[in-house]
Write a protein that binds this DNA or RNA. Structure first.
Lengths: 253, 253
DNA sequence: CAGTGGTCTAGACCACTCT
DNA sequence: GAGTGGTCTAGACCACTGT
């Protein structure tokens, strides 16, 4: 007698919800449109609000939705392509790069950064904070760590902070002959400071791009940049920058 | 009389929990060690299980923890560096690349892929499925889309599926002179099929790497590869591959 | 089978944004 | 102040892994 194994793999409700919502977004909504609020949506689908939220969270992760506290949930535009390696042989701060210096401090680096720089844990480095804005929207926040040895002319000069100071450090960096660099991309979550700068809540998913700049046979600087994962698609090796685009994430089951 | 604005920004419990757990992981746990189960942990911290889970989810996102249903939560090893552009001027399937062909089918592409390939929505393409394994662990699943025009010798031959077929298509592709390629990285969530192949649950976060291969002035192939975001750090421009490493994600508040 | 993480519920209150 | 998303609770049951 066959126990026919009905529904051998019952699909979770939130997963099914996500599918339904994705189709609705594709066919019935346009970019910028606001969705009904979470309580109404949950009622409409006959699920608890927490379950509905689980679906919305994934859609936000995939860049389909944008949620803002006190405002509502809107349909997100397609992710923007952000060139990450357009200046293969240029220092940060070279003319025309997409970053804007914000501040500069001098302090001992974290153990991780010290390791990348190949210096002792208690050697001071310049830390330049920069931000990257595209289409009027903040897309990334960066901490650029530069050992004193890379900018010897500056090691003993005046006030070691402020945007002007940041520009001075970057200007000094240009004098070194750049030899190469390597990058890594991984998933992270925004810390409090980055979150504020990116206009997101702490813990939001970010793409962390770590870049090691090489000159004179050693590591001359290390950049740790956090990009908003919801709105950005990082491009590598593209000339123009905005060539690849397609819907990411969940492929049909 | 001063309403002194105590706790002007009360930190969410799960955020504080995450901080505490992170410190505990750094100091008191070693890789592979299993944590107490979620109910016990929640009780120990005096929070609901859902709240504890919110903290664990973020730590898993950051690659600090690994959770497996029916087994438990363990301390994850540092993310492995995975070279994504080591073969800048080689086709997929060239000797020594890290991928293993699994299958090959012939079908019409999705609208997104058709757009990247610059072909009509109803033109059939070869779709080669490949998987990438590092240190005995699956790290990525790929769909490689190749228009018939890129492998003209094969367009009218026998059974269009199977791993042998996949190898034949890749072999044929090598004959084209490769001209360049561009890549993009974005966040996505694993579909059912990729999830199975990556040994994760559907919806798990993945890094989607889209690559456009150019030859003879057009797009000769498009690859969409999904990497496990929890275990992988994608490296670009590195010679060896395993040079950059540091703790990602949440920077101190 | 016992124990684990995964899903789901029906509430409650809070922080924020707009009007 | 009204309405939104964000956090949190205390339960329940399910799916999976091991023994």
């Amino acid at each position: 007698m066959g126990t026919t194994q009905l529904e051998s793999v019952p699909e979770p409700k939130y997963w099914h919800l996500k599918t339904v919502l994705t189709e609705a977004l594709d066919s019935e909504f346009s970019v910028g449109q606001v969705l009904p609020n979470e309580r109404d949506l949950a009622a409409r689908f006959g699920v608890a609000r927490a379950t509905l939220r689980q679906a919305l969270e994934q859609l936000e992760l995939e860049g389909r939705l944008q949620r803002r506290r006190g405002v509502g949930t809107t349909v997100a535009p397609p992710r923007m392509g952000v060139a990450v390696d357009s200046e293969q042989y240029a220092w940060p701060g070279a003319p025309g790069d997409a970053w804007q210096p914000v501040d500069c401090t001098s302090a001992v680096p974290s153990a991780a950064v010290a390791g990348l720089l190949g210096i002792d844990r208690d050697t001071r480095v310049f830390t330049v904070r920069r931000s990257r804005v595209t289409h009027g929207q903040p897309v990334a926040a960066e901490l650029l760590h530069i050992p004193d040895a890379s900018v010897p002319e500056l090691s003993a000069i005046d006030a070691p902070s402020g945007a002007a100071r940041a520009r001075a450090v970057l200007r000094e960096l240009q004098r070194l002959p750049i030899e190469g660099r390597e990058q890594a991309v991984e998933l992270g979550s925004a810390g409090a400071e980055d979150a504020r700068e990116l206009d997101r809540l702490p813990g939001s998913p970010v793409l962390v791009v770590t870049t090691r700049f090489c000159a004179e046979g050693r590591t001359a600087a290390v950049s740790v940049a956090t990009y908003r994962a919801d709105t950005c698609r990082l491009t590598f090796g593209a000339s123009g920058g905005v060539e690849i685009h397609h819907e990411p994430g969940a492929r049909a089951s």
